[in-house]
Amino acid sequence: MTRKKTACLVGLLGLLAGCGNDQTAQESLSRLPKGKALGAMVTAIFVKPQPFRADPAAVATVRGALEKAGQPVLLVTVPSRGADLFAPYGQNGPVITWATSAQQSIALDDGLLVATRGFGPDLMSASVPSLAQVSRATGTSHRDYYDLDGADQNRHFAYDCTFAPAGMEAVEVFGATYPTRKVTESCAGPDASFVNIYWFDADGRLRQSDQHATPGLPTVQIGRVVD
C-alpha cells in the first residue's frame, strides 16, 4: 500500500481525510483547519504576527551558491508574509516576470513593480514612472493601480507622487552591504498614501526598493541579490 493510501485510510478513521481521486470533493476537507491550525487561527484574531528574521550563516551559504550559479536572483520580502528568492521566468517587451518555486511572481518594468501574482491581494496592473525619472530624484509622477476586490471586481487607485533625494545610506541585501543613494517617492491618493523608497548603488543600479502594490499588499521589498 502506498503512503498516500495509508494516510487516507488512517485519516478517514479519524474523519479528517478522504480517499479517492476526485480532487474537488476532497479539497474542502483537506483545507479544513485542523487542531493546531485551528488554534493558530483563533490566536491570530487576538495576537499580531511577529516580524520575519533570517539566519545570517544560512544566508551566507545560499548567497555563495547563488553567485556561483550566476543566474540573476531577487530577494522579495513582504512584511508579515516572509521572504523568498525569485528568478527570471519570462519577458514581454521591457517587462520581466520573476517567479519563485512556490509559484508566486512579480513583474518589473525596468525595476518598477507593475504586477504581482500568487500573493492573493495581487497588483493586477499599474502605470508607473520610468526608472530614469526615479533616479533623477526630482519632479512628480502620476500612478494608476488596478487590483481585484473580494468580489473579483476591478478597482482603480490613482496617486500623485513627488520624488525627493534622501541622502546616502548603506543597505544590506541578503548578506551583502552596499553604499547607496536613497530616493523617495511620496504618493497620495483619495484612499491612501505611501512612500516608495529606492536605493541606487555605486554603479547607478537599483539595488533595493520598497514599492507599494495594493491595499492588501502594501509594501513589496525587492533586492537584487545576483545581477
Binding site: 519570462g90 514581454n92 509559484q103 511572481s105 473580494g150 492588501g216
Partner: peptide, 21 residues
C-alpha cells in the same frame, strides 16, 4: 459576514504562466 467580499480580498493560488511573445 459579507458574502460580497472574500475576507482575504483577491483570490490566491499559484501564479500563472507568463505570456510568451
Amino acid at each position: 459576514l459579507n458574502p460580497d467580499q472574500r475576507p482575504q480580498g483577491g483570490i490566491g493560488g499559484p501564479a500563472p504562466l507568463p505570456i510568451r511573445p
